[in-house]
């Protein structure tokens, strides 16, 4: 799947009701290519996550548009966009994003269960858990996971619906070297299978898995 952003920008209000804005992402054009890994680097607060959220249909842009295979994400209503994201875009948010009321396996199946039968996805979910070496804790409540385990679970969850686009925000943040390589290799292999992958990271290691590298600085995107 091909993702394209045109003239995309986002401003935030600093003080509610006041005209005091700051620009998190300056107007920019951006695209994710099918079968490619794009790495987006930059300092904290540079606007990387804001850009990723807009690309994932999670944050209404101030200007511009985001389209996937020609379909404008923000022209869709919330129901349609949510369902579209569920099927086509795998988002891995930053930090611990497991639902504490569910087990690891249930967390991974959750996206599939939203619009279909969760049971159908169980086999693939177990396969993903094995792939990320967390199969033995599939019945453990996600609140009991370590940072690394939770991160791997998040990656498995993002892949459960076999999305064509994968947006990973600091996917290796809590991982040791071994797991960092495992995750990056997995994302690389998904791209090799045809997915469009965006990795937002601080890790310089990610660069060697990338087809394209961008840097974000003060809301301005530059291709390296």
């Amino acid at each position: 799947m091909k993702l394209e952003a045109v003239n995309l920008s986002r401003r935030f209000t600093r003080i509610k009701g006041d005209a005091n804005y700051f620009t998190a992402v300056s107007p920019t054009d951006f695209s994710l290519k099918e079968g490619a890994v794009t790495v987006l680097m930059g300092r904290s607060g540079s606007g990387k996550t804001t850009l990723l959220n807009m690309l994932g249909g999670l944050l209404e842009p101030s200007t511009g548009s985001v389209s996937v295979d020609g379909r404008d994400l923000y022209a869709m209503d919330d129901d349609e966009r949510s369902r579209f994201r569920n099927r086509c875009i795998g988002v891995m948010p930053q930090g611990h994003s497991a639902l504490s009321s569910l087990t690891v396996l249930e967390n991974v199946i959750l996206p599939h269960a939203l619009y279909g039968a969760g049971e159908d996805a169980e086999e693939y979910a177990r396969e993903l858990l094995s792939r990320f070496a967390i199969a033995d804790i599939s019945d453990v409540r996600s609140s009991e996971l370590s940072g690394g385990e939770a991160r791997r679970m998040t990656i498995a969850r993002a892949l459960i619906c076999r999305p064509g686009i994968i947006l990973a925000d600091e996917p290796t943040g809590d991982l040791d070297d071994e797991n960092t390589v495992l995750v990056l290799e997995t994302l690389r292999s998904l791209a090799d299978e045809g997915a469009s992958v965006l990795i937002v990271t601080h890790e310089n290691d990610a660069a060697r898995f990338a087809d394209e590298i961008y840097r974000m600085d003060g809301g301005t995107l530059k291709k390296i």
Binding site: L58, D79, R85, N86, L99, L114
Partner: peptide
Amino acid sequence: EFAVLRVVGMSRK
């Protein structure tokens, strides 16, 4: 928790 549900595709409704 609700943001995570939105991320995985849950609509506002």
